[in-house]
Deep mutational scan, measured.
Amino acid sequence: PKCKGCFKAIVAGDQNVEYKGTVWHKDCFTCSNCKQVIGTGSFFPKGEDFYCVTCHETKF
């Protein structure tokens, strides 16, 4: 599969995040607002966007 963030291949051994059939490298899975890496931490999906806890609390 290819990462939705950088469009490069995800190979065995890469740390990745999967959500609803889409996959990202862990470092490519970032907050849509502040761009900080969410990685495998908590996040809030809103449509096609993903927000870290801090930005979600501030924005919504």
Rank of each mutant, 00 (worst) to 15 (best):
F44Q: 14
G5F: 04
V11F: 07
T58L: 07
V53H: 13
F43Y: 06
D27H: 05
C3P: 01
K20R: 11
W24C: 02
D14Y: 12
I38D: 02
C28I: 01
V37N: 06
A9V: 02
F44E: 02
K35W: 08
Y19V: 14
I38Y: 01
F29E: 01
F43W: 09
K59W: 10
C28F: 01
Q36R: 08
G41S: 10
D27V: 05
K8H: 13
K20E: 14
C28L: 01
T30L: 12
G41E: 07
K26S: 15
S32Q: 08
E57H: 15
D27K: 13
K46I: 05
K20S: 11
H56L: 04
C52G: 01
F44A: 11
C34G: 00
E57T: 09
G47M: 04
V11C: 05
H25A: 01
V37E: 05
C52W: 00
G47L: 08
F43T: 09
E48I: 15
C55I: 00
K20N: 08
S42N: 03
C31F: 00
K2P: 08
G47H: 14
E57V: 05
F50A: 07
F29S: 03
C52Q: 01
K20W: 08
K4N: 03
Y51T: 06
G21V: 07
D49P: 03
A9I: 03
C55K: 01
T22L: 09
Y51M: 15
I10K: 01
P45Q: 02
A9L: 03
G39N: 08
C28V: 00
Q15A: 06
K2D: 15
Q36G: 14
G13F: 03
C31Q: 01
V23I: 12
V23F: 14
A12L: 11
F44Y: 02
K8I: 03
C6M: 00
C6A: 05
F29R: 07
F7R: 11
C31L: 00
T54K: 04
E48C: 05
F43I: 05
V17E: 07
T58Y: 08
V11H: 07
K4W: 02
K4P: 15
V11R: 11
V17M: 14
G47D: 07
K4S: 14
I10Y: 06
F60H: 03
A9W: 02
S42C: 01
A12F: 05
S42Y: 00
G41A: 12
E18F: 08
P45W: 03
G41N: 05
T30C: 15
V23R: 09
E57R: 06
D14V: 03
T22R: 12
T22A: 09
W24V: 05
D49C: 10
W24S: 01
K4I: 15
